[in-house]
Design a binder for these strands. Sequence first.
RNA 1: GGGAGAAUGCCCGAGUGGCUAAAGGGGGCGGACUGUAAAUCCGUUGGCUCAGCCUACGAUGGUUCGAAUCCAUCUUCUCCCA
Length: 406
Amino acid sequence: MSVFDTLKERGYLEQCTHEEEIRELLESGPVKFYIGFDPTADSLHIGHFIQIMVMAHMQRAGHIPVALIGGGTTMIGDPSGRSDMRQVMTQERIAQNGEMFKKVFEKFLTFEDDRALMVNNADWILDLNYINFIRDVGSYFSVNQMLAAECYKNRMEKGLTFLEFNYMLLQAYDFYRLHEDYGVQMQFGGNDQWSNIIAGVNLTRKKSGADVYGMTFSLLTTSEGIKMGKTAKGALWLDAEKTSPYEFYQYWRNIADADVEKCLALLTFLPMDEVRRLGSYKDEKINESKETLAFEVTKMIHGEEEAVKAQEASRALFKGGPDSSDVPTVTITAEELGDGLDILTILDKAGLISSKSEGRRLVQQNGIAVDGTKVTDIAQVFTPDDFSDGLLIKKGKKIYKKVTVA
RNA sequence: GGGAGAAUGCCCGAGUGGCUAAAGGGGGCGGACUGUAAAUCCGUUGGCUCAGCCUACGAUGGUUCGAAUCCAUCUUCUCCCA
């Protein structure tokens, strides 16, 4: 089966410019393709992971991924899918973030023997000459068409700066340069990138007269159409420092029934018959599929060891009761503990609450249990004796935190 | 550059001098029910040394016994004209 069909079958594919030609191209030999990543944060989140999976599938099929770091384009900020202007970042931050990205990519792709490349568009964008650029590139764009593009539409109401309006030209120019300098023939991206990708395809075709293509992939959304990967603390990060493996595991363990099959197909390498089998489970049995999903995805991001730990911790907590050593742990000093601390202070130190009032509310609403016993008194004090094995605090139904004394 | 309007709690959005820690909705959190799902229902949602106090309606200053509400200046945003 060709990669094209694989990508299609697993549900990555959303739109493509020339289906027949693309299929042929991909079957005829190694193809260089690129995906852009804007280094606006120092870690990648789950949305980027889909793109990484696509690169991995493609590399496995012998094609060559080019990961483009948008060091230059980030100076402008992509208005797609944004209702407000992006924050402008310093060049140092951007470069630093780009480095972090590469580390993640290396887990899924091999960069050996140029089997994958990583380039930064700052290399050609930063010293563009304005007049030359608008003459060479700007003349190929129709403002009328641009304004009709989906990505600018919702900004027409809120206001769109000229700075951001130029983003499309730069991304299109990227494709042109990558084609000229590296022989890149295709651009991939999230479905929100469709307008920008077409712009690049059109520009390159017009300027170089070459056949280049574009494809977009589904954004990870829930069955209700909401973007996935949002947690209470923000995005679901791939960096263990920002989202612990346990939290990460729990996110997938708690996914909606309807999304299980889609996630398995998009986020794991499990064979499709397996995916379909797991996705067809009903009622309580689908929990098994969710475990598989959570385990597989966690394994890919954080490694097998962490995945096993996360799985054991979660099984122990939910099935066998509150007794596990692999729960996120917070350590306080004996000095801080003194002769004992009240529950609100402990919750605060454990990072479970953002204010004492919140803690009060939780206790009053029966949302806190310590070592399996509900705490009902907001003044309850825990002494060093209670801490002999550490305290296992349960907040709500699913959040556990262990507090130990050092 | 000229003119008109807007700024309220996490978000949207009521509120035009005391009854406003501020309606309503969304989201979040907790509880019930469950399958660590969804839906539903109930409660809660500024902070604290919590029957009380403090801080809050873009910013600063003013009027008043009393201001989110009135006045002045400033800031930001939107719209119309150029």
